[in-house]
């Protein structure tokens, strides 16, 4: 499982940090490094661009996993540079941004957009595997999630836009229900496709979603 990210346009990073002339940059050694959006190389490039844009970079660090509590230790180790900065630019997914936000009161700005939580199917190819809906139906859909694999998130079968196993939104993408159909047919379980799925409960855990584990 990886958090897939994409770099924001530099102009947007500049706009967010407008008036905050001293910055500290944080990258992430896990997902953002893998996605080539916030590893050592990207953090170095961001540092150079920010300097070119007239910012003073007080420091830059790639934290092993930005979304865990070790982040507090790393911030402590870089205390002076962090204190000298007027804002923190985080090149990690939104979890990393919010982790840093837990420890600091100064502005923490995202340099990346978080796209989805993905699974690597083949080297370098990631797909969104789970919508975190709170009512898993993989047992009835041959292990293929129609909420993420079908553009419309349908439950009761393919829409009229499917064609030769592809999706109306993008002919490069597979139709979830063709995949589900083929796999269920192989398993001799097509009866599952005939089953009526009632409307989904969209309030399994009403937002804000929280869980307390004791």
């Amino acid at each position: 499982m990886k958090s897939l990210t994409r770099q924001k346009r530099f102009e947007e990073v500049k706009r967010m940090s407008d008036g905050l002339d001293r910055v500290f940059i944080i990258g992430c050694g896990t997902c953002a490094t893998m996605a080539k959006t916030g590893g050592v190389e990207e953090v170095g490039a961001m540092k150079a661009r920010l300097q070119e844009a007239g910012k003073l970079v007080t420091g830059a660090v790639v934290i092993p996993t930005a979304c865990d509590e070790m982040t507090a230790v790393l911030l402590e180790e870089n205390k002076k540079a962090v204190e000298d900065a007027r804002c923190i630019i985080v090149m990690a997914c939104a979890l990393g941004v919010q982790q840093v936000n837990l420890y600091l009161s100064k502005p923490v700005l995202p340099a990346l957009d978080t796209l989805f939580i993905g699974m690597e199917k083949s080297p370098g190819y990631f797909f969104e595997a789970c919508d975190q809906c709170g009512q898993c139906i993989l047992g009835e859909t041959a292990g293929i999630c129609p909420l993420t694999a079908c553009h419309k998130g349908l439950l009761n079968g393919p829409c009229g836009g499917t064609d030769k196993g592809k999706c109306e939104v993008d002919p490069e993408k597979d139709c979830a229900f063709t995949l589900i159909y083929e796999r269920l047919r192989e398993q001799g379980r097509l009866d599952l496709m005939r089953r009526y799925h009632p409307p989904r409960n969209h309030q399994v855990l009403p937002r804000p979603r929280e869980v307390r584990i004791s």
């Binding site: 079968g157 009229g160 030769k164 229900f177 063709t178 159909y181 097509l190 005939r194």
Partner: peptide, 19 residues
């Protein structure tokens, strides 16, 4: 409702037709 008699593959479409 609607149905696409020439959908490809056809069987998933016919299953939905029955649903």
């Amino acid at each position: 409702a609607t149905v696409t008699p020439e959908a490809e593959p056809l069987e998933p479409q016919l299953i939905k037709f029955e649903k």
